[in-house]
Every structure is written in structure tokens, then in C-alpha cells.
């Protein structure tokens, strides 16, 4: 592993193999990063041995329980139309590949969409059901189910064409030093990845592992939920889930990880 930095600071040299399939957790950075990261390294490498091991075995991965719950929800009719996701999309495998290319600017509407956005659009405009809370259980369960369908596929979020202004907006946010601590995402995840803030081993802050099962919270976390936590920790006013700002930031951060594989449901502490 050619990661630079102090001996203590290195992410662990290891391979993520799930059900015999190797998941790409180290990759060449895309040209658009302009050398900001010498190498892309998934957050998995920064976690301790037990946490890494949990993710290597689907029976030990607590996030997989939520995938099962997500499948029940997928098949359950809801709303005034009395339809389930399965009524229109058949099995969840119809969603294969989607996780690797989102967030994206939707070709038909021009809106910035992540998977949560698509799901709530289907619920409100096609099922006659209420939008789910963006960090509630039904949303994260179905998100886990959909994400798993792309496990192993390489992140490939578009940053050109209609996505270009969104990318620029996300990038601007990424480098802004918010809050009373005046810290940007880049201060922690670009300048200091590999270092420790107290006992926290700072990773490069990629989103390829999301949704993440977070041991500390014993729950699944969306990427935007994580961002909100990181911004709050700078003693700043956070952004709302699903806001233009967080949608742009999610697209930008995802694109920084282009080339890393979708982990499905990852485990972090």
C-alpha cells in the first residue's frame, strides 16, 4: 500500500473480500481531483480489525439485517394506489448499477437526485403515500437493499454536462471552513486523513460504503446524515437533509470516490 504519511498514520493494508468476491477499496484518483489525494482509500481501511472483519462476512455484518427488512418493505403495498415497489420494479435486482451512478442530475427532470430522492418521488407521486423521513428506518432499510444490488461496481458519478454546476457547488462547500471551529471537509479528510482526532482515525471521507452500519449508533446512516454530523461537529449551523446544498455536496463527495467499489452496506464505528 503506497499511502504516504507517518508509520502510525497508515490505513491498514488489507483486502476486503466478501463471499469470495474482492471489493475494490484502493483506487487511482480521477483526474478531476487534481492530485488532491495521492490514492483513493476506502474508510474500511481506517477501521480496526474487528470492524473490518464484520464487513467481510454477511452473517456478521449487522447492516444485512436491515437489507432483509428492506425486502419486506419493497414487497409491501402502501398508499392510496395500493402498490408496492415490486408492483412496478419487480425484484430489487432491477436496481443494479444505480448506486454507482448516483447522485446524478435526472435526465428527465433536471433535478439532482440521490436514491432517497427517487424513492420519495415514487412514494408521493406514484404510490399516493407519504414521503419517508430521510433518516428513518424504512428509508435506510430500502436504501441498504438497493445499494447492495450494486456491490462491487465501481463508483462512476458524472460530473460533466448538467452535473457540472452541481459539482462546482459541492466543491465550494467541501472547501469552506464552516462554524466556530472553522473547519472544512478538506481540513479533516484531505489534509489530515491518516491522522487521529483524539481516538478517531480520520479517513478520506468517501461515500462508497453508504449506507453505513454505525456501531456507535447501532443504526444505518445515510451519507447526508453523516455529513450533517460532521458539520455539526464544527459548531456550525448544519444543512437540511435533501437540501440543494447537501445534494450538491453528496454528488461532489461521491465523485471524489469514483473508482472505489460500492460496498453495499458497510460497517464503521
Amino acid at each position: 500500500l503506497a499511502v504516504t504519511g507517518m508509520a502510525l498514520a497508515e490505513p491498514v493494508d488489507d483486502k476486503l473480500i466478501i463471499e469470495g468476491e474482492e471489493i475494490k477499496t484502493i483506487a487511482e484518483p480521477s483526474a478531476h481531483l487534481d492530485g488532491a489525494l495521492p490514492e483513493l482509500v476506502s474508510g474500511w481501511h481506517y477501521r480496526d480489525t474487528e470492524t473490518r472483519a464484520m464487513q467481510m462476512d454477511d452473517f456478521d455484518n449487522p447492516g444485512m439485517i436491515f437489507v432483509d427488512r428492506g425486502l419486506d418493505i419493497w414487497n409491501a403495498a402502501d398508499g392510496t394506489e395500493d402498490k408496492s415497489c415490486a408492483s412496478c420494479h419487480e425484484g430489487p435486482e432491477s436496481m443494479a448499477g444505480l448506486r454507482a451512478v448516483t447522485p446524478r442530475v435526472d435526465a428527465k427532470t433536471g433535478d439532482v437526485m440521490n436514491i432517497e430522492g427517487y424513492i420519495n418521488d415514487c412514494r408521493t407521486t406514484r404510490m399516493g403515500a407519504e414521503a419517508w423521513n430521510l433518516k428513518g428506518d424504512p428509508m435506510t432499510d430500502v436504501l441498504a437493499l438497493i445499494s447492495l444490488q450494486s456491490r462491487g461496481e465501481l463508483m462512476n458519478v458524472a460530473i460533466d454536462g448538467p452535473a457540472a454546476p452541481v459539482y462546482e457547488m459541492g466543491k465550494e462547500i467541501y472547501y469552506t471552513r464552516y462554524g466556530q471551529l472553522e473547519l472544512s471537509c478538506a481540513n479533516c479528510h484531505e489534509d489530515n486523513n491518516g491522522n487521529h482526532i483524539r481516538s478517531d482515525h480520520l479517513s478520506q471521507g468517501h461515500t462508497n460504503g453508504f449506507p453505513v452500519y454505525r456501531l456507535k449508533q447501532a443504526a444505518l446512516l445515510t451519507a447526508q446524515h453523516r455529513f450533517v454530523g460532521c458539520v455539526r461537529d464544527t459548531r456550525a449551523e448544519t444543512f437540511g437533509l435533501g437540501s440543494d446544498e447537501l445534494n450538491a455536496l453528496e454528488l461532489y463527495v461521491a465523485s471524489r470516490g469514483n473508482g472505489l467499489a460500492v460496498e453495499g452496506v458497510s460497517v464503521r464505528h
Binding site: T176, Y178, G179, R232, R235, A236, E237
Partner: peptide, 14 residues
């Protein structure tokens, strides 16, 4: 002189 200053660690505006 802060950008989006918060009210301590609440995530709310300060």
C-alpha cells in the same frame, strides 16, 4: 467573523 456559525454543537444557527 464565522461562516454559518452554530449554537454550540446543536447544529442550529448561532
Amino acid at each position: 467573523g464565522y461562516i454559518r456559525p452554530g449554537n454550540n454543537y446543536t447544529g442550529k444557527a448561532g
